[in-house]
Design a protein around this nucleic acid. Sequence first.
DNA 1: CTGATCTAGGCGAACGTTCGCCCGAACGTT
DNA 2: AACGTTCGGGCGAACGTTCGCCTAGATCAG
Lengths: 344, 344
Amino acid sequence: MPSRVTIKDVATRAQVSYQTVSKVVNGQAQVSNETRERIWQAIHDLGYRPHITARNLRVRASHMLGYSWRPVPPDQFNPILDKLLQSMVEAAEKSGYHLLPFPCPPDHAQIQVYRELIFSGRVDGFVLSSTNLGDQRIAYLLDTGFPFVAFGRANPEWDFPYVDVDGAAGLRAATEHLLSLGHQRIALIGWPEDSLTGKFRVRGYLEAMQAASRSVEPSWIARGEHSAQFGETAARQWLDVPTAQRPTAIIALSDLMAIGAMNAIQERGLEVGKDIAVVGFDDVPMAQYLRPPLTSLRQPIWEIGQQIVAMLIKLVRGEPLEEPRVLLPPRLIARASSGAGVPG
Amino acid sequence: MPSRVTIKDVATRAQVSYQTVSKVVNGQAQVSNETRERIWQAIHDLGYRPHITARNLRVRASHMLGYSWRPVPPDQFNPILDKLLQSMVEAAEKSGYHLLPFPCPPDHAQIQVYRELIFSGRVDGFVLSSTNLGDQRIAYLLDTGFPFVAFGRANPEWDFPYVDVDGAAGLRAATEHLLSLGHQRIALIGWPEDSLTGKFRVRGYLEAMQAASRSVEPSWIARGEHSAQFGETAARQWLDVPTAQRPTAIIALSDLMAIGAMNAIQERGLEVGKDIAVVGFDDVPMAQYLRPPLTSLRQPIWEIGQQIVAMLIKLVRGEPLEEPRVLLPPRLIARASSGAGVPG
DNA sequence: CTGATCTAGGCGAACGTTCGCCCGAACGTT
DNA sequence: AACGTTCGGGCGAACGTTCGCCTAGATCAG
C-alpha cells in the first residue's frame, strides 16, 4: 500500500496552503479562478481523493444510515430485500451517504445495539423495518431524539416519520377487482389480530365490501401464521362448505399463503381462477410462473426506498419534513388466478 | 444532540491521563488493576463508547468491506441475497468490521467506482460477486494489490482468493441421483458457452454420465439465457421427440429454468416426476411449494458468506491465507419432481 | 489622497483517537 | 550501596480533514 496522497500533497504541488485546497474541493468561493484551476489540475495529476474518515471526524458525522432487517426463515422468501436495498443504497449515495446493514439483534438486545451504534458515532440515523405496535426501538429513538424513519406504522399516538404501503388501498383494489368479476362471497386469509399491517389490510377489504353493500360472514376471515401451510388449512376449511354457500374467491394477505390456498384448491380437483379465484399480496417474482399465474398486489418498493432515505437524510441534516407520514398504494397485477388477464 | 462523551471525560473522572484510558479500552497491559477498575467504572458511569471514526482515522483503516451485487431483473429472484448478506454482515461484525453495500456500477464505470472507494479510504477490502471470465475488477485489484475475495471463479491463470460453489460436484450428485432412479437419457438446460459457472456445472454432468458409462447425445444439452421462458423452450424441443428416444429426466442449471421446463411438461399433459423427472439448482424457497415440489441443489450460502468474510479479514490484516481457493459442494434436496421423496 | 470595503488566501486550532517514547518509583541482584 | 530491570503511567505527536479568523493587497467612493 503506497502511502496515500493527501490534501497537503496537492497543496505543495499547486503552491498554495492546504486549507485553500480544501476550499476548492468543497466548492467555496474565496478562490480566484486561476488558483482554482491550478488546484484542480494538481488534484487530477495526483489522483487525489478526500479521505472520508478524516472528513467525517472533522464534521462530526458518519454519513452512514443504519438498517437492519429481520431474516426470514429458510423456507420462506424475502421478496423485497433486493430491490429495497438497491433503492436505498442508491438514494443514499446520491446525497453522499452510505447504508450500514447490521444484524437484526435479538429482541432483548435491540436497544443496546441501537444505543451502541449511536454513541460510537457509527451512524447518523436509522431506517427501521418490520415495525409493529409497541416497537421499543421507536420509543427509544423518539425519546433520545435520534433521527430515524420507519418502514411501517406503529402506535397511532406516537408521532414519528414513516413510509408505508397502503395495505387498505391494496385490499380495496383487490376486493373491487373480484367484485367486478362477479364474485359475491369473498374470503380472506389474514394474520393474527396483533398484526398491525394485517389490521390495515383487513380494513380495506371490509370497506370495499361495505361500499358494495355486501355483508361479510365472520367465517370468511381466517387468521393464522404467515406460512403456506396455514394458507392451505384455511382454504380447505372453506372447500368443505357446500358449493352454494362457499366463498368463490380468496384473498390472501401474502403470496406465500395464497400459494398454500392454490395448492389446497387444486388438490380437490378444482381449478384456480375458474372455480375459485385467488389473489395474493407481494407479487413475489415467482407469482407469474405459478400455474395459473397468481394475481397479486405489488408494493412500490423502489419508491419506498427512495422516499425513506430522502426523508431520513433531511432529518439528519436538521431540515423539516413537510410530509412525515407517507402511504404508497400497491398496484394490482391481474393474472389468471383471479380469472383475469391472459389465461395460462 | 448532547455533545458526546469522549475519552478525556473518562480520564478526568478517573483521574488519569486520557492516553491511559485508551490503553485500558484496548486491553493493553501496562496498567495496574486498581487503575483499570477505576477507569472501567468511569467508562460505565458516563456511558462512554469509543468514537469509531476517530479510531479509524488514527489507525488508518475504515473497517469496512465493500460489497456490490448485480440486481436481478424484476421478473426474476435473487434466492441468496438475504442469507448471504446476513451471513457476511454477521461474520464481519464478529471481527469489528462492517459491510458497505454499494450500487453495482455500469460496466464501463466499474473500475472508476472501485478506485474511488479505495482512494477515499472508504473500504479496506472487497467482496466480489458475479465474477466471470476476464473480470476487469479482478485484474485491477490484483494489479493494485488491494485485498479482495471473490465469490466465484474467473480465469484459471489468475491467482486470487475465492470461494465458490462446487457446481461440478452438484451436477454429479444430481446426475447420479437420476441415474440411480433408473434414468438413462438425461438432458440438461444450461447457459451460453461463455458462462464459466455453467461450464463447471456441465462438466460435472458429463463426468457423472461418463462414470456410469452413459453416452451423451449433443442434443441433450440446451444452452440459452437464464429465464423461465428458455426453460420452457428447451423442454418443448425434447417433448417433441418420440417417446422412445426422448430424455426421461431434465436437469436445469437454475430453478427458474426448471420451472419453465415443468410448465412445458405439464402443458403437454405429462406428469412431472413420473413421466419426466426435473431437477433444478439453487433451491429457491418457493421450490418446495411448487406442484410437484422441485428437487434442487441447495448452495451452502451461510457457509460461503462466513468463509468469504473470514478470508477477506485475514487478507486485510496482512495475515496469510492457508487455503485461498475454497470450493463448497451444494446439497441435493430430493423432492417429488425427480420422482423421489414424499409425493405431492 | 484617505479611509472604507472587498477579496484571495494563509494560519492556527480542533475533531477523538492511538502510538511510541519517556520517566520515576519500586524491586531485586551483586 | 550502587546498579540494572520491570512496571505503571504520562506526554507529545500524528492521522487528514474543515472551520473560523486574520491579513495584505486591491478596489472604490468621496
